[in-house]
């Protein structure tokens, strides 16, 4: 639940989602769910020349399992809060 909470706090911020197929999408984080599926608004493809078929896409739903990275705004993060939340996080088992 840790990252679900973290991403909920980031709704409205600008992020860049890099997919496992190397496509990178920038946009405003609209929503996230427990699977870390992501909905982006005002979507822009990072490398437009390479992926012109995405030019007309404005809003999109990204399945969490296809995400490789999410680039985050550095000032949107309370690092101490993340450390504490991680220490409290339940173990894998």
């Amino acid at each position: 639940m840790l990252f679900f909470s973290y991403f909920k706090d980031l709704v409205g911020r600008e992020v860049t989602v890099e997919l496992k197929n190397d496509l990178a999408l920038s946009g405003t984080l609209h929503s996230v769910d427990q699977y870390l599926n992501i909905k982006l608004e005002n979507t822009r493809v990072v490398d437009q020349d390479k992926y012109p078929h995405m030019l007309s896409v404005r809003n999109c739903f990204i399945r969490g399992s296809v995400v490789r990275y999410v680039q985050l705004p550095p000032e949107g993060v309370d690092v101490e809060l993340l450390h504490d939340a991680t220490r409290r996080e339940a173990r894998g088992g």
Binding site: L2, F3, Y6, L36, L72, P74, V77, V79, L82, H83, A85, T86, E89, A90, R91, G92, G93
Partner: peptide, 13 residues
């Protein structure tokens, strides 16, 4: 390393 969970999801600075 700023955060991780049991899936090894992580946040790096």
């Amino acid at each position: 390393l700023n955060a991780f969970d049991q899936h090894l999801n992580m946040i790096l600075e």
